[in-house]
Amino acid sequence: MPVSLPQIDEQAGAAPEDWEAITAALSRYVRARTSRSDQVEDVVQETLSRLVEQNRQKTLVSIYALGFRIAANLLVDHHRRDRRYSNEPMMEQVSEAPLPDRVIAGRQELSALTDALAAMPPLRREVVVRRRLRGESCAAIARDLELSLKAVEKHITRGLADLHRAMAARDSQ
């Protein structure tokens, strides 16, 4: 999907080729996050313009980290707005629910992830559940499970890599 870059001519700091790389990475992230293709461009554009604005005001510590964070927040906003509309029974509108093929793909993803979680060593799965599902801090997990902080980080990292591999295997089928 072509995404036009915001005006960055006067941009000190990041070089134009960096913006292309940033745009590509953010687009890839946003595409993977939403089933609504019409939102991808909006979210990426909005993220970039906020990023450019912030970058103009001050030197950013990490332009990539901020970019992904802005995009994630915008996706949540969009999702909330969609939900608010769909909870309104009186509202007649073009439906924005995912298409059936997307629902099926979603189910396949879900079963691939469920299988990968079942195949994990129980301790690793426990750490991932606590971190992602229950939002516990790494320090709290380390304390509860009597692990070092380093070990918790390793379990999360390996767990995520396991899940990613399961998704990649599904995609290549």
Partner: peptide
């Protein structure tokens, strides 16, 4: 690096992962 991070970050944030974790729990 960028592609792998974008995929991994999207996976970590995805609702599908949350559902899978709920099921597993």
């Amino acid at each position: 690096h960028r592609e792998s991070f974008a995929d991994m970050q999207a996976l970590w944030h995805s609702d599908t992962l949350l559902q899978a974790l709920e099921r597993s729990e």
